[in-house]
Design a protein around this nucleic acid. Structure first.
Lengths: 140, 140
DNA sequence: TTCCTTGTTGAGAACGTTTCTCAACTGATA
DNA sequence: TATCAGTTGAGAAACGTTCTCAACAAGGAA
């Protein structure tokens, strides 16, 4: 996401554009994948040594609030953040903490069609995410 | 799960059958759904007031280890436990902490067939879980 | 029986992650 | 200028979870 879009998005939601917020978002994009708060803080501090831990958490939460980022969960206990690009699923390694994105529009379509025909009682679906658990065959 | 089966399962994995372990498992079954560790501890202490927090966590982890229970994740930060019955998915309420089980063998079959035809490069699938996010229409 | 050995428990300290509190700062507005 | 709302940095605090360790229980061997 370029700065124009970011600024627009922040303004739209009534959040001010600050150097700290830009730094946090840059760090998330730079890290890619699904970084932990710890990694993000580490990277942000490279250019911004005085930023407080709490500030980064607050900023990350505000980004989750305006849907610039999403929380991602492992089966373990640490929160990770995911810069939203488009609808995607996650491959979880059964052995390690590794998480990879998985895009599959064909599958999305199949599932979408399935739930057009078959409703879940008393439940309105907004989104379906697959957790695909398994093992990476090459070094991961 | 009745006690016979539980005892067999514990012995099989080299874990001793203790009153605390039975109490924890009973609490999980009694609570049903996807209780947090906190709720489980609360219920266990009703009949077992002196049980230590760490003991319950240790027992829960040992049950996860022998696959009597599974960890379940919300997007928030609390661990929940799920007494495994059969393959199932989860409905997550977008508004609350409510989680419901969702069983759908027809859908499982469709997804299974899909991945028989289409492999994910460098990845061996062991299990696929759907996180279905949305809203419950009746009071939930 | 007594002595090991092994696994389990209870108590509380310790840990890592996340949230909270609050004074200081910033930028906009009047 | 003064005022105001939002934001930040610093550290304390809270929270869920794990760890440490002495005490205990059960089983086997002597």
């Amino acid at each position: 996401m370029d700065h124009q879009l970011l600024i627009a998005r922040l303004n739209e939601k009534g959040l001010k554009v600050t150097p700290q917020r830009i730094a946090v978002l840059n760090a998330v994009y730079q890290l890619g994948g699904h970084p932990t708060a710890e990694r993000i803080i580490e990277v942000v501090r490279r250019n911004n040594p005085n930023i407080a831990t709490g500030t980064v958490y607050k900023i990350l939460e505000s980004f989750v609030g305006i849907e610039l980022l999403r929380r991602v969960k492992t089966d373990k206990d640490i929160m990770r953040y995911d810069a939203i690009l488009e609808k995607h699923h996650h491959l979880y390694c059964a052995d390690s903490e590794n998480i990879e994105d998985y895009f599959d529009q064909e599958l999305d379509k199949i599932i979408e069609d399935y739930f057009k025909k078959k409703e879940i009682p008393d439940f309105h679906i907004e989104e379906i995410k697959l957790q695909i658990i398994g093992r990476f065959s090459s070094g991961s």
